[in-house]
Design a binder for these strands. Structure first.
Lengths: 222, 222
DNA sequence: ACAAAAGTGTTAATATTACACCCATGA
DNA sequence: TCATGGGTGTAATATTAACACTTTTGT
C-alpha cells in the first residue's frame, strides 16, 4: 500500500457486570492470524459508514442489544506498523458499557463469544490486551467524575445496585452510608421513582438515571 | 476504495500561550480542496510510521520544536464518509501543548503558518473547527485534574506564570493566594529551584515541573 | 428473634473560599 | 513613597471519612 492508505477496522471493548464482577466480551478468532485465540470483537469499516456507525453495527452484531441501551464512546486509535501480520491495519477502538444482558450473547457473529472477568483475561490476539487494558482504565477513571456507572444498570435500580457497580469496576469496597449521601447530594445523578424493590433485607428505593453527566466533585478511588 | 481501506492522516491541534491568550497554530492550505483556507497542520501517515511518530514528525516540521519540549497526546479519530471531498480520509488528531516558541514558527511546511487566538478563530477547512474545539476542551478539562499546565511553560517558571496559564486557558481569573497554596500543597506539582526572578513587583521564586501527573484533588473551574 | 441490607446522625479531619494584610523590589 | 506583583494569616464554610446506630423487610 502507498503512503497513508491503510486498512481501517473498528474494535470494541465491551464491558458489563455479571456476578458482581467486571467482565469483557471476547470472541474466538475463526480465521488466521491468531486462529483460535481470543480477541476483541470488531471488523472492517464499510465504505459509506461513519466510525461510530461501524461501532454500533459491531455492537449489535455481537450482542444483539439496541445501541441505545449502552454507552458507547471512542477509546483511541492503534496503528503501529506491525500490529497486524496481514499488513498495515489501523483500528479505531470503542468502549461500550452495558447492563448485564438477558441472554448471554446473541447475534450472528457471536457463536464463539463469551464474557471473561477482566481480572483474569485469556491471552489476546494482536495488541488487543493493550486496547482492553486502556478501555478498562478509561472506564475506571470515568466512574470517578461522570455518572457513567448507571450505564451498567437496567432501570430502575437501587443505590445498592449502583454501589455494587463501583465496587465491581474498582475492585474495592465503598462505605454504604457515605456513598448514598454522595449520590443523592449530586443533583441529576439519579431520580427517585417512588417505587421500591425487595432485597434480602429492608426494601430499597428504586431510581432512574438523572440528567447529569458529570460529577462535581468526583467520587474518588482509594 | 474497497471496504475498510482508506487514506489515513494525522492532524495536530497545537496550542500555546502568547500575550496572555490561548492560541492555536493554523496553516493556510496551498492546494485544493479549501485552498487558501486555514486548517490544522497535518499530513499522511507514512507506510512504516507509527501514529505517534507521524504526529511528532508533523510537529517538528511545523514548529521546529524538539518533540520532548511538548506534551503530545492522541485526541481522537474523525472519519465521517464525506468529511473530505477528495475521498474517504480518516484522520487521527493529536493534541500538543507547548511553551511559547522563541521564533514564531519554523520548518519547511510552515511558510503560511500562524498563531490564532482560540477565542476568535478563522473559518477552518474540512471538519477542523470541530477537531480544534475538541482539542481546546480537552486541554481545558485536563488542567483541572492533571499537572499539564506546566507543559505550556519553559523552565524555570514562577507561580504567577503558572497561574496565568490557567487564566489564559480557562479565560477566567484565579485568586492568587489560594492558587499558590493549592499548587504548593500538591506534592510533585512543582519543585523549587532556589532561584528567583525579577518581576514588576517583588521577585518571585522559580520552580521546575515536579514528577506528579495527576492532581488530587482537582483545581476546579468556576 | 434474627439476619440482612437500607437508611440516618454525628463528629473529626480536611479542603475551599474570601478576606485582610505584609514583603521586596523598581521607579 | 508609591505601584506592583509575590507571598502569608486566618476564619467561615463546605466536603469527606469514619463510626455508630435505627429501620424495614423475610425467615
Amino acid at each position: 500500500m502507498p503512503d497513508g492508505v491503510f486498512a481501517v477496522t473498528v474494535d470494541l471493548v465491551l464491558l458489563t457486570i455479571r456476578a458482581g464482577e467486571l467482565m469483557i466480551l471476547l470472541v474466538r478468532r475463526g480465521v488466521p492470524p491468531y486462529r483460535g485465540r481470543w480477541a476483541l470483537p470488531g471488523g472492517f469499516v464499510k465504505v459509506e459508514e461513519d466510525l461510530p456507525a461501524a461501532a454500533v453495527r459491531e455492537l449489535t452484531e455481537e450482542t444483539g442489544v439496541a445501541s441505545t441501551a449502552a454507552h458507547l464512546e471512542q477509546l483511541g486509535t492503534y496503528g503501529a506498523p506491525r500490529r497486524d501480520p496481514r499488513g498495515r491495519v489501523v483500528t479505531v477502538a470503542y468502549l461500550a458499557l452495558l447492563p448485564d444482558l438477558p441472554r448471554p450473547v446473541a447475534g450472528t457473529d457471536a457463536a464463539a463469544a463469551a464474557w471473561h472477568p477482566v481480572a483474569s483475561p485469556p491471552r489476546l490476539a494482536l495488541d488487543h490486551a493493550r486496547i482492553a487494558a486502556d478501555g478498562i482504565e478509561r472506564a475506571r477513571a470515568k466512574l470517578e467524575y461522570t455518572t457513567l456507572a448507571t450505564a451498567f444498570l437496567d432501570e430502575p435500580f437501587t443505590l445498592g445496585d449502583l454501589r455494587r457497580v463501583y465496587e465491581a469496576v474498582w475492585a474495592e469496597s465503598l462505605h454504604e452510608g457515605n456513598f448514598r449521601r454522595k449520590v443523592l447530594s449530586t443533583p441529576g445523578f439519579v431520580e427517585p421513582t417512588g417505587q421500591s424493590a425487595r432485597t434480602d433485607g429492608r426494601p430499597a428505593a428504586l431510581y432512574r438515571r438523572g440528567g447529569a453527566l458529570r460529577l462535581h466533585p468526583a467520587i474518588l478511588r482509594g
